[in-house]
Computed example of a mutant assay.
Amino acid sequence: MRLAFQDFQFDCKELTLSKDGRKISLKEKPAQILALLVTQPEKIHSKSEILEEVWPGRTVTEQVVFQNIGHLRALFGDDAIKTFSKKGYQWQLPLAAVSDQSLTSNSSESIEKTESTPVNEQVEVARDTEHQADSVLANKSSSLPWPIVAPILIAAAAIAGYLALS
């Protein structure tokens, strides 16, 4: 299943992410968390549920969930994933299922909303989403380069956590 949000497309089966038709590098664990969140966007996913789903049979700290959520927020914006205190995380951005037709034609008219919405409304939604994504990108251009800064912060936190356990 392929889902579209903002100007991204995510293949939940292959765990691949693309933006404007170009593949975006996304590590396995954040991709698995993203798949969990977007395939059940109405649900609040607890840290323990995410740990069981993404790191089955392994003992890892809840910090890895926090770090990977931070990485996803760096890619998609802070509004993409909402934190519910002591409950978990929930996907917030509107999602649209992408039909097989759109994979070959790459047209926004082929994007199908998950509800049964007429095609002309789907196109309108796709255009609105593109406009919102452009606005978000324009607003973020003056801020820190999060796709670069976030992995550095995550690595620093992982090293600090490792050192604390030693």
Results as ranks from 00 to 15, higher is better:
Arg2Cys: 12
Asp7Gly: 06
Cys12Tyr: 00
Lys13Thr: 03
Asp20Tyr: 07
Asp20Gln: 14
Gly21Ala: 03
Arg22Glu: 04
Lys23His: 01
Leu26Pro: 00
Glu28Asp: 08
Gln32Asp: 08
Ile33His: 02
Leu34Phe: 12
Ala35Asn: 11
Thr39Trp: 05
Pro41Asp: 14
Lys43Ile: 13
His45Trp: 03
Lys47Leu: 07
Glu49Leu: 05
Ile50Trp: 05
Gly57Met: 01
Arg58Leu: 15
Arg58Ala: 15
Val60Phe: 07
Val64Trp: 01
Val65Ala: 09
Gln67Phe: 15
Ala74Leu: 02
Leu75Ile: 07
Phe76Asp: 02
Asp78Arg: 15
Thr83Arg: 08
Phe84Val: 13
Ser85Pro: 02
Lys87Tyr: 06
Tyr89His: 05
Trp91Lys: 10
Leu93Gln: 02
Thr104Leu: 14
Ser105Leu: 13
Ser107Pro: 05
Ser110Tyr: 02
Lys113Gly: 14
Glu115Met: 07
Glu115Ala: 11
Thr117Gln: 13
Thr117Asn: 06
Val119Ser: 15
Glu124His: 00
Ala126Thr: 02
Ala126Phe: 12
Glu130Asn: 09
Lys140His: 07
Ser142Gln: 12
Ser143Phe: 13
Leu144Asn: 13
Pro147Leu: 08
Leu153Trp: 03
Ala155Val: 05
Ala155Tyr: 02
Ala156Glu: 12
Ala157Asp: 05
Ala160Cys: 05
Gly161Trp: 00
Ala164Leu: 14
Leu165Cys: 09
Ser166Ala: 09
